[in-house]
């Protein structure tokens, strides 16, 4: 464990907590893409499937973190699609999730380190996570604005994988550990946030709201 991965995981936890708080406090999921949250839930379940296969005692933080990620993302989907369904902005959350799931699944079958079920599920989860934020970014571009709290959520969510890139550089240098598939997907994922990061740093930090040119 290194400082980059530690802060990456903390940033990821913060993102999940910020979103849950936003929906719970405002009792509304306006401006939140339900599809992105569904895709994240699928990522966690397919990536941590080993938790369900051979049960291991929750002796270490990694297992606990995995369970937190899975339960928090499923709970977020519950809030969006059931509890606060009336506030779900289905019209603007219109990116076709199939256009993300099918290519990720196909690519996972073509490019992977080992052709076995668990490894393909893990690879699928990595590819899907790289593009899972697209429906959320698409929704913001359609509505033309993002609530400040939602911007903080996106900033934390984007920072988590950016910090993981630093973690991979660190591990390459000090542990000569390389996981090419995760690195390439992580770089793509972080690049997708670039224009949002620019808007966030130039606007939200100064207290302005993000409003995209209509």
């Amino acid at each position: 464990m290194n400082i980059f991965r530690l802060f990456g995981d903390l940033s990821h936890l913060a993102a999940i907590a910020i979103l849950l708080l936003k929906i719970w406090k405002t009792r509304s999921c306006a401006g939140v893409s339900g599809k992105t949250q569904l895709l994240f839930a699928v990522c966690f379940i397919t990536r941590y499937i080993d938790l369900f296969l051979h049960f291991v005692s929750l002796y270490n933080t990694e297992k606990v973190m995995k369970l937190i990620y899975i339960s928090a993302s499923v709970f977020t989907c519950y809030l969006i699609f059931f509890k606060f369904k009336a506030t779900y902005d289905g019209n603007h959350d219109s990116m076709r999730a199939e256009f993300l799931i099918v290519p990720a699944a196909g690519l996972a079958c073509l490019i992977n380190t080992k052709f076995d079920a668990i490894e393909i599920l893990w690879t699928f989860s990595i590819y899907l996570e790289a593009v899972a934020i697209l429906p959320q970014l698409f929704l913001i571009s359609k509505t033309g604005e993002a609530e400040t709290i939602t911007s903080h959520y996106l900033f934390a969510q984007g920072s988590y994988r950016a910090l993981y890139i630093l973690n991979w550089i660190y591990r390459y240098h000090y542990e000569s550990h390389v996981d090419t598939i995760a690195i390439v997907a992580g770089v793509v994922q972080t690049i997708l946030y670039c224009d949002f990061f620019y808007l966030y740093i130039t606007k939200v930090v100064k207290g302005q709201k993000i409003v995209l040119p209509a």
Binding site: E62, Y69, T113, N167, D179
Partner: peptide, 10 residues
């Protein structure tokens, strides 16, 4: 006996 844990990150 879990196979050698290749992916040790979240």
């Amino acid at each position: 006996l879990s196979p050698f844990k290749k992916h040790d990150e979240l």
